[in-house]
Amino acid sequence: MRRRALLGAALAAPATARGQARVVRVVNAYGAGGTADIVCRLLFGRLSERSGQSYVVENRPGAAGTIAASVVARAPPDGHTLLYDATAHSVNPALFGPKLPYDTRRDFLPVFLSLVTPNTIVGSHHFAPRTVAELIAAAEAAPATIDAGTSGIGSAQHITLALFNAMAGVQISHVVYRDAPAARNDMVTGRIQLQFSNVPGSVGHFRAGTARVIAHTGREPVPVLPGVPAVAETLPGFETYEWNGIFLPAGTPEEIRRGLNAALNATAAEPAVAEKLVALGGLLRPNTPEEFAGFLEGQFALHGRVVREANIRAD
């Protein structure tokens, strides 16, 4: 097992003509301090230690992840530039259409699915409903009077809100914030009633009692949110996730992709790393590039349908 892990790490570390490893650039589509940045630095920091290959994270946030993706789409396919992206990657084709400066499926090779975590519905203590059924009843009684904050148009949380409105047959208003902390502050103080968030962003509220985590959007109980029910218990079939993953530019040799996948699987399975991912609310499972690609196709289909049916527009 150790031999296979070391082989994977070696394959994941391309060498120069002189036989010395070059720095591998990890272009992160999100800013410092968020979930994507935490997981990215956790994985690649440990992978650098394991392999002796230097992985340097470069944060290039903005434009729903398209700035970072554009950089990697144009990079040489030699294994020295990676993209660390998240849920917006599977929303953007429907959200931006032909305006995207790259082809999401054609220009990137899926490598490794590094995090999957449910979204959440979090309510202010100033807001009376305590369950999904009570929330739906309140929204039915007073359409468009309940405000829910998210971190952006087309975000995983916006998709979750739009799907909730459609499946519950209600109209909860969307309030767009520059980032999740800004939405969180207004929700806690009661300026808005709800925040559609994710598990990592909700654990602190749950433990401190500063807000009420009404439900999560996964299929199974979430260990770090004990007792919090799934939306699907009230709306059967309801399921959304926020995910993180690693991509290479199209045309990168397959042995590099396979080696990087093996090295990342081994790194994520280390107890010290796995414990931190679980603490964030991550649903851990080893995965191959093919499995990640299959997961993505399901996300493309779901997000594309919600964007079309809810008429979500980037402008």
Rank of each mutant, 00 (worst) to 15 (best):
F300H: 09
G304W: 05
P226I: 07
L248G: 03
R178E: 13
V122W: 09
A17S: 09
A15L: 14
G123E: 02
V170D: 00
L113T: 10
A144Q: 14
G149H: 06
L42I: 01
F295C: 00
V176R: 04
N287C: 08
R60Q: 12
D85P: 13
E270F: 10
A268S: 12
T131G: 04
G281C: 03
E290R: 05
L95N: 03
M187R: 02
T160D: 15
E255H: 14
G190Y: 00
I159S: 01
E233M: 13
E254N: 13
A262M: 05
E220L: 14
A128K: 14
R258K: 11
P98N: 08
T104A: 01
N261Y: 05
G123I: 05
V91R: 12
A73G: 00
T87C: 06
A10K: 09
G52K: 04
A75E: 06
A262T: 05
G281I: 05
M167R: 15
Q299C: 15
V278K: 14
P223G: 12
A211H: 06
A144P: 08
P253N: 01
V23N: 05
M1I: 02
V23I: 03
A9W: 14
V122Y: 08
A32K: 13
V116A: 07
G190I: 05
P143F: 05
F96T: 12
I172W: 07
T81N: 02
P226N: 11
Y84L: 11
F196H: 00
M1Y: 01
I38V: 10
L7N: 11
V170L: 02
A144H: 14
N287G: 02
S70C: 10
A183G: 08
L296Q: 07
R25N: 10
N119V: 14
L161W: 01
L194E: 03
H216R: 08
A17G: 11
I214Q: 09
I246S: 11
F238K: 08
A13P: 09
T160G: 03
E270A: 13
P286K: 04
A162H: 04
A148Y: 07
W243Y: 15
V203G: 03
V188Q: 01
E134I: 06
G282N: 13
S155K: 05
E297P: 01
P226T: 05
A269G: 09
R2D: 10
V273Y: 01
G31Y: 02
P129W: 11
F127Q: 12
E290D: 13
V71E: 13
A156S: 14
Q171E: 04
E140L: 07
Q195C: 06
K99Q: 15
S202K: 10
A138E: 09
V203T: 03
F295Q: 06
Q157F: 02
A168I: 08
P200F: 02
D147A: 11
I192V: 09
G282T: 02
T189D: 09
P223T: 12
A63W: 10
P181F: 02
T120I: 03
Q195S: 01
D85L: 03
A211Y: 00
T81Y: 07
A12T: 05
